[in-house]
């Protein structure tokens, strides 16, 4: 045991500064770098596995459906699209995840949800529920507790009991057998609280929603306060989202 204590002290602080200057492996989403779309070219639209891109005069990307697979960038014959190096960003409204390029770039929206829960300003307790994810989201949520991201320093903790939870962090498109347990977990939480749809599956179903055994996200099951895009969302995006709930940046 003393061996580990010594080892820990010797290793020193491994935690990243916050806010981060640079995000490693941000896995950004596609965006146009020129407006040279030839007339009638719909190749990016038809290539998208989740119908996240539409083209009706202007290119439109639903960040709540885009899994960042890069197929649209690869098929684009005129080099219009490029995968952004910026990480994805959470939004308080489902509609604000839809970016209409060129026409009117939406101004950065307020992240903080409305409602009673605004009284929460300092610490947060988070209950995670897996409603049918591929476990990529769990891997990144789990990474929040490693020394590099160190979520504890912000006063944000995971709790096993929904009774103590301020935040319900939901992943997955909501499979049929998880529908009732998900609602029961929400019902067991005190009010006011926040519900966070984490990852593309929870927002829109992504590649894994619908069909005979799952829904298209948690939108019609629970009142969602914050939508966190990404497949899966980068740990930095998750931290920003959780801090946004309590109106903090650091």
């Amino acid at each position: 045991m003393p061996l580990w204590t010594y080892r820990g002290l010797k290793a020193g602080v491994k935690t990243t500064p916050w806010p981060l200057d640079e995000v490693v492996g941000a896995s950004g989403l596609p965006e146009p770098i020129t407006d040279a779309c030839p007339d009638g070219c719909e190749q990016c639209v038809t290539s998208c596995p989740t119908s996240a891109i539409t083209h009706d005069g202007a290119l439109t990307l639903d960040q709540g459906a885009c899994v960042g697979c890069n197929l649209c960038v690869e098929v684009c014959p005129s080099g219009v699209l490029k995968l952004s190096s910026r990480p994805t960003q959470a939004a308080a409204g489902r509609d604000t995840l839809i970016r209409r390029f060129g026409v009117e770039e939406a101004s950065p929206t307020k992240l903080r949800p409305e409602g009673d829960a605004r009284r929460m300003r300092k610490s947060l307790f988070v209950r995670h529920v897996d409603a049918g994810s591929c476990n990529g989201c769990e891997s990144e949520i789990g990474a929040l507790d490693n020394p590099y991201y160190n979520l504890h320093r912000f006063g944000i903790f995971f709790t096993p009991s929904p009774r103590f939870a301020d935040v319900l962090l939901v992943t997955g498109p909501v499979t049929n057998p998880m529908h009732e347990p998900l609602k029961a977990t929400y019902e067991a939480m005190p009010r006011p609280n926040f519900v966070v749809a984490t990852g593309v599956c929870a927002i829109s179903g992504g590649t894994n929603g619908g069909g005979y055994s799952a829904r298209q996200g948690i939108g019609d099951v629970l009142p969602v306060d914050l939508w966190v895009p990404g497949c899966p969302p980068h740990p930095v995006v998750l931290i920003e989202a959780l801090l946004a709930l309590i109106g903090r940046e650091r």
């Binding site: 995670h128 897996d130 049918g132 507790d145 929904p162 347990p181 977990t185």
Partner: peptide, 8 residues
């Protein structure tokens, strides 16, 4: 729904 961040 189990303890900690785990799958269902």
């Amino acid at each position: 729904v189990r303890a900690d961040v785990v799958e269902s």
